[in-house]
């Protein structure tokens, strides 16, 4: 039951190796083994999106994947969103628009929003709401989150910072 598997993956640009049990989720592997606690556990059923990370460019609920399935993948977590000392435009806009209250859902929203902006640099409000519908926030009523994402999209179109920060 508890025999461990060696997994090799790229996490936030670094090659990492870790040992995990077959039953451990990717979320648990990130949080408890790699000590990347930015992704949060809200439900373990893929309903709240607080554990969202990007795997090979796609937004994924890390609670719905096993750690062993990460073998050979390229993972970005919220910890990898800012480049050295500089916040990603999404992070800055979330702060400027007061888009977080308790902040527990924020890492998941940031990753889902990044997934959207990578695909669609010019989203309208409906696009943003559709892309973020898999993430639950109970504090804000989403208003300031949607505004921040639209503003970040405009900012990235003007300054293109996201392209650099995305890697």
């Amino acid at each position: 039951m508890s025999k461990k598997t060696l997994v090799e993956a790229t996490v936030n640009g670094e090659t990492v190796e870790f040992l995990c049990e077959p039953r451990q989720s990717l979320l648990e592997s990130l949080r408890d083994i790699l000590e990347l606690t930015g992704a949060k556990e809200g439900c373990l059923t893929g309903d709240c999106g607080a554990c969202s990370v990007m795997i090979d460019g796609r937004v994924v609920c890390s609670c719905l994947m096993f750690g062993v399935e990460a073998q050979g993948t390229n993972i970005t977590t919220v910890e990898g969103l800012a480049t050295t000392g500089t916040l990603h435009s999404l992070q800055r806009k979330f702060l400027e628009h007061a888009s977080l209250q308790c902040g527990i859902c924020t890492p998941g929203f940031l990753m889902a929003a990044k997934g959207l902006l990578d695909r669609n640099p010019e989203p309208n409000e409906a696009d943003v709401r559709y892309a973020l519908a898999g993430n639950l926030c109970r504090c804000t009523g989403y208003d300031k989150i949607v505004k921040a994402v639209l503003d970040a999209a405009a900012d990235l179109r003007t300054h293109g910072e996201g392209k650099a920060a995305a890697r």
Partner: peptide, 11 residues
């Protein structure tokens, strides 16, 4: 704020 958008804040 900065800790909460970078995943550093400790819950």
């Amino acid at each position: 704020g900065a800790d909460k958008v970078t995943g550093r804040a400790k819950y």
